[in-house]
Design a protein around this nucleic acid. Structure first.
Lengths: 143, 143
DNA sequence: CAGGATCCCGCTAGATACTG
DNA sequence: CAGTATCTAGCGGGATCCTG
């Protein structure tokens, strides 16, 4: 089945995405997920030790998230969560209590991205001192 | 040495960075590296098969980068490269030819971040279809 | 070739007020 | 509690022109 293989390859090449290309949807998706709040929201949702003494791990309420992500505005948090929900990275569950309870949880897709972004967040925290040193040196050299 | 361990832990806790905190420098660093252009520049600089038939792999000229990152403006490319240089992620080398030749190369620090960000870029390309499906479903459900 | 300098528009993030 | 709605200031980012 050499011919089918070659044909399949051609078809494959057509539907493959390349973020280096300006018009490619993956470029826009890369832009979406390359976001401070996305990284922090996903990190918080996967953090089991986040909201101790309550229901299931990895399930957080809106208010818990906003407390965890210090300094986030309601607008940005809601916007980020909506975007993540639309892209299928988190699920939003509304429980009709009084007042209403809304919880967010990672999907499998979200979990896969979370692993990557947690690495980026950890990198930032781990190499902070190194970067700070480089900045000082650079600023001294160019001033 | 239980006391020293406890003391060390306390000292450690002081100098550790936490991107969840608003004032933490690592939050700002996370914001910097959570950037479309950062991901693409680092990805391009590590790509050996990028500029075939020329000097060393992983060494790219300004014009080669701007060609690779389709749609990037000069301003954003220069701005991104400056920032990366300042943070010690890339080195900038000026060769006094006529006209001048400027090349960029990853540092070890930059290489370590590149591995992570390449994962993010690959994720975007790999899961594009899945995300697109979720968006269609979401838009249909909410319209 | 590899930018620097400037102008300027858009839209995004933040603050504030209101609601089911 | 978990948002929506509205307004606005600020700046991100593109276009354009210029230079060593």
């Amino acid at each position: 089945m050499a011919t089918t293989t070659a044909a399949q390859k051609r078809v494959r090449a057509k539907v493959e995405y390349d973020a280096f290309l300006a018009g490619c949807p993956s470029r826009q998706l890369l832009d979406r997920i390359s976001d401070k709040w996305v990284a922090l929201v996903l990190a918080a949702l996967g953090d089991d030790a986040c909201a101790p003494g309550h229901a299931a791990p990895g399930v957080l309420r809106y208010s818990e998230l906003s407390r965890r992500l210090a300094g986030v505005s309601q607008k940005m948090l809601t916007q980020t969560l909506r975007s993540l929900e639309r892209d299928g990275l988190v699920t939003r569950t509304v429980t009709p209590t009084v007042p209403v309870t809304v919880t967010y949880e990672l999907t499998d897709l979200g979990r896969s991205l979370r692993e990557l972004l947690r690495g980026v967040k950890d990198w930032a925290e781990a190499h902070m001192d190194e970067v700070l040193d480089h900045r000082r040196e650079y600023d001294a050299r160019t001033s």
